[in-house]
Simulated assay, not measured.
Amino acid sequence: MDAVYAAQRHIYDATRKYYLLGRDRLIDDLAPPSGGTVLEVGCGTARNLIVAARRWPQARFYGVDISEAMLATARVKVAKAGLSDRITLAQGDATAFDPQTLFGVAGFDQVFASYTLSMIPDWVGAIEQGARVLAPGGVLHIVDFGQQERMPRWWRGLLFAWLGRFHVTPRRELPVALRHVSREQGLSFGFETLLRGYAWAGTIRR
C-alpha cells in the first residue's frame, strides 16, 4: 500500500470526492453517544475522520491504516484541522489490529469502513475484526462500490476496468459476508443498495 499511495496520497482527496459516493451519508448515520468512541478502519488521509469529528464534536475518533505513507499525510491533515486532541491514528492491519494496544480502547461505539473493503485482500477478515471490536450496542458501518446492477452495462464495464488499475475490486459477496459474520458472532445485520447499485451499504450491530 505504501508503494501504491506514495504519490497518490497528495491528490487522493481531491480526486476521490467525485466517485466515493455515500461516505458523508455514512458519517451522518454514526450518531455516537456523548463521550463515545468511533474507529475508522482504513482511514487513509483522515478525510472522513476530520469530517466526522466536526459533525460529532462530543465523541473521540480513532483511525487505523496499514499504509504509513497515508498516515503521514493523515497526521498533517489532522493537525492542520486542529483536531489532534480528538483524532488518534495508528498503523495496523485491518484484519488483526489490537485496539487496546494501539489506542488503549477495548471496544468502540461505532466502527466504519468507507471504500476500503474493495482494496483489502482478506476483506471478510476485516469485517470480522470490525465487528469483533464493537462495544456492547455498537454498530459497524460499511459503504463501498456495489455491482452497478441498475446501471448500464457499458458503465459497469468501464468502471470496473478503471478500478482494476488501482487494485480495487468491488465485493460481489458483501451481503453474504455480512450475514455470515453476523451469524458467527451472534449479531444482527442490515444491507441496502444506493444510487442504482453504484454503492452498497451494510451494518452489523452488537
Rank of each mutant, 00 (worst) to 15 (best):
G125R: 14
Q100S: 09
P99L: 00
R150Q: 15
S118E: 08
A90C: 03
G92E: 08
V168H: 07
V124H: 15
F103L: 04
V124M: 13
F112C: 11
P121K: 05
W162C: 01
L117K: 15
D144M: 09
S114D: 09
L83H: 10
G146F: 04
I87C: 07
Q91C: 14
F112G: 05
L134H: 06
G146K: 00
V111Y: 05
V111R: 08
L158E: 02
A94L: 01
W154H: 02
A69R: 04
F145W: 13
R86S: 12
Q110A: 13
V78D: 04
Q147K: 00
A96H: 12
T101D: 06
G82R: 01
A177C: 05
Q91T: 14
V111W: 03
A135G: 14
V143P: 01
A161R: 12
A96E: 13
H141S: 03
H167F: 11
S84P: 01
M119W: 04
D122P: 02
A161F: 10
R179Y: 00
M119Y: 06
E173P: 01
A81V: 02
A72E: 10
F160P: 02
M151N: 07
A81N: 05
T95K: 08
V124G: 12
A106R: 11
I120D: 13
V133A: 00
A79H: 13
A72F: 01
Q110C: 12
L140F: 12
G63T: 05
G164L: 02
W162K: 07
V176T: 12
A72D: 08
E128S: 05
G137Q: 00
L83R: 10
V76H: 15
W154C: 00
D65I: 10
E149L: 09
W155L: 14
Q91F: 14
S67A: 09
R156Y: 11
G63S: 14
V143K: 01
A106T: 14
R179M: 08
Q91V: 15
S67H: 07
A94R: 01
G92L: 06
W155C: 09
Q147W: 00
G107W: 01
M119N: 06
P121C: 09
R86F: 10
L178I: 03
E173C: 09
D93P: 02
G125T: 08
G107V: 04
L83Q: 08
A79K: 15
G157C: 12
E149T: 08
F145S: 13
F166G: 06
V78I: 07
Q110I: 12
H141V: 02
D85P: 00
K77T: 03
G92Y: 07
K77P: 03
Q147E: 02
I66W: 11
R165C: 09
A79M: 13
P99F: 00
V168T: 15
I127E: 11
G137P: 04
R171F: 10
F112Y: 14
Q147C: 01
T88N: 07
E68C: 10
F145R: 07
I87G: 06
F112W: 10
T73V: 13
R171M: 10
L178G: 09
V76N: 14
V168Y: 08
M151S: 06
P136T: 02
F160M: 04
I66K: 12
T88W: 06
V78T: 04
F108Q: 11
W155V: 14
Q100I: 11
E128K: 02
A79N: 14
T95F: 05
L140K: 03
L83T: 11
